[in-house]
Design a protein around this nucleic acid. Structure first.
Length: 485
RNA sequence: GCAGUCAUAGUAUAGCCUGGUUAGUAUUCGGGGUUUCCAACCCUGUGACGCGGGUUCGAAUCCCGCUGACUGCACCA
């Protein structure tokens, strides 16, 4: 389905909707998850925990969203996460100072240069606004981080622009107290905040968004010395090489040098196995190796996991080999020790990061799962049962003849075990359609026969087929059908 | 941030040009009835002009500002 249909469903069924929408001064880039959206998000994260965190024995933490200024001085965000901008005094157009100067005067000034250097060059070269020939105001830094003031003294601090900084600063304590051994994965789910210039397209470009990040700390001398690589060596990856997407196993990718080492390949393999289980159409996915100019300021080698949607390729995960950039910066700034022992060797670990965009992943799952069943005139969200916001609808065929009471009884039996929805009102077909739209994989219907022999029908969402089972079997059937893979 | 288009119930829309209606329609949703296994039908009810200002006797309609959405450019750790 397309963006428009997903958006319509999201609004109608409370998957997600704009934040503060009753007020006129609501700002772009902030969206809320409704009950249906939260339910999918929780299940998606549970799958993530199972397939990555637990599988790989990672440690999960939950850090602060507000972090001190020093953190971002060390991480480089205060310096690098800001763009030098200049604004025309006359028409108000804003430009990237470094880009404009290189375009017009053909002089390269690094974006991290002092602001005075930009002003000087603009004066020297007599650069005017390209739109209205107006004069420029002096250059300013636009930092994408949200600044906050702590306490009555208004002490400078920032909302984190990525969740991983707490993982880095917590690393020494975690390694010691959790009896860490390299390679060690530390994971975190939470919100990050970026003051985007142009937030767009609901969940796809937010100012406040969810990340599920994993930082794997490793011995840089042992990137090809990884026993568990055998677990995924035959997992196939789809990797973009020049203009083609090539399909190859993790092992082949390493042997051919497409991926620099087993360590990186291992995690790209895990990630692939995870996304296969989310129901995203993997035929529409690719890993793309980023060029020098595209990479983040801290990344050595970077692969983006991207998925093709109706609005183009969407970056769902950034996989960055950050080397010792973060740990050495924090070590230097904090004067704490970040080296650890790896057997007899003292090393400052390198970091490989798997930074997942949750909101974008959820959108993609919705887009790839939503389909129109024209034959039966219905919209169906064919989402994996273990990700469905409602597992099962519990319906009475009619309200009278004691069926309502019987239905309530069955609902009470399963409501704490599954996400269940009780519905008595209206035509049975309408109630089935409603469940189809929010992706409930099953519907239990109580009919007259139920009173005679204690059986109910179970209807399957995807093919509308029904079969009759005894009430005593319900729990085990549903448990089996909605279980995580 | 720039440019263009746009903003009316939960959703999708009509009305705006040419100012005056009880703001229409479809669907959804609540209550009731009837039928009972795939959005049927009948009765009934709830529900909207993004926010702020201006013009006018009178503004959903005309004007200005703001906010948002969409598309393109720029940006994107």
């Amino acid at each position: 389905m397309n963006y428009e249909s997903v958006m319509k469903l999201a609004l109608e069924r409370a998957f997600y909707f704009p934040s503060c929408e009753v007020y006129g001064d609501a700002q772009a880039g902030f969206w809320e998850y409704g009950p249906t959206g939260v339910s999918i998000k929780n299940k998606f994260l549970e799958l993530w925990r199972r397939e990555l965190v637990r599988r790989d024995r990672m440690l999960e933490i939950d850090g602060s969203q507000i972090m001190s200024k020093s953190v971002f001085e060390a991480s480089g965000h205060l310096g690098n996460f800001a763009d030098p901008i200049i604004k025309c005094k006359k028409c108000g157009s804003t430009f990237r100072a470094d880009k404009l100067i290189s375009e017009i005067a053909n002089v390269e000034i690094p974006e991290s240069a002092d602001l005075e250097d930009f002003d000087k060059m603009i004066q020297e070269k007599d650069i005017m606004c390209t739109k209205c020939k107006g004069e420029f105001d002096s250059a300013k830094k636009f930092n994408m981080m949200f600044r906050v003031g702590i306490g009555p003294e208004d002490v400078e601090a920032y909302l984190r622009p990525e969740t991983c900084q707490s993982i880095f600063v917590d690393f020494p304590r975690l390694f010691k107290t959790m009896r860490g051994k390299l390679p060690l994965g530390i994971a975190q789910v939470g919100k990050s905040f970026r003051n985007e210039i142009a937030p767009r397209q609901s969940l796809l470009r937010l100012r406040e968004f969810y990340q599920a990040e994993i930082e794997v700390f490793c011995n840089p001398g042992k990137l090809n010395d990884l026993e568990k690589f055998s677990e995924i060596e035959n997992t196939t990856l789809r990797i973009q090489i020049s203009d083609d997407i090539q399909v190859m196993t993790c092992k082949e990718a390493v042997d051919k040098g497409v991926i620099p080492n087993k360590f990186v390949a291992y995690y790209l393999g895990l990630l692939t196995e995870f996304y296969e289980k989310t129901g995203i159409d993997m035929e529409k996915s690719r890993f793309r190796k980023l060029g020098e100019k595209e990479k983040a300021f801290y990344a050595d080698v970077a692969f983006d996991f991207e998925v093709n949607t109706t609005i183009g390729w969407l970056e769902l995960v950034a996989c960055n080999y950050r080397s010792d950039y973060d740990l050495s910066s924090h070590a230097k700034k904090s004067k704490e020790k970040f080296e650890v022992m790896d057997n007899d060797e003292k090393v400052l670990p390198h970091v490989f990061e798997i930074s997942m965009g949750i909101d974008r992943s959820l959108y993609t799952i919705l887009e790839h799962s939503l389909r129109e069943d024209k034959e039966n005139e219905r919209m169906v969200l064919s989402i994996k049962p273990y990700l469905a916001p409602t597992h099962v609808g519990v319906l009475s065929l009619v309200k009278k003849d004691g069926l309502l009471e019987k239905t309530d009884e069955i609902y009470r039996l399963i409501r704490t075990k599954f996400d269940s929805f009780l519905d008595h009102s209206g035509a049975i077909g309408r109630r089935y359609r409603r469940l189809d739209e929010i992706g409930a994989p099953f519907a239990i219907t109580v009919d007259h026969q139920t009173k005679e022999d204690n059986t109910v029908t179970i209807r399957r969402r995807d093919d509308m087929a029904q079969n009759r089972v005894n009430i005593s079997e319900l729990e085990s059937i549903l448990a089996k059908e909605t279980a995580y893979p």
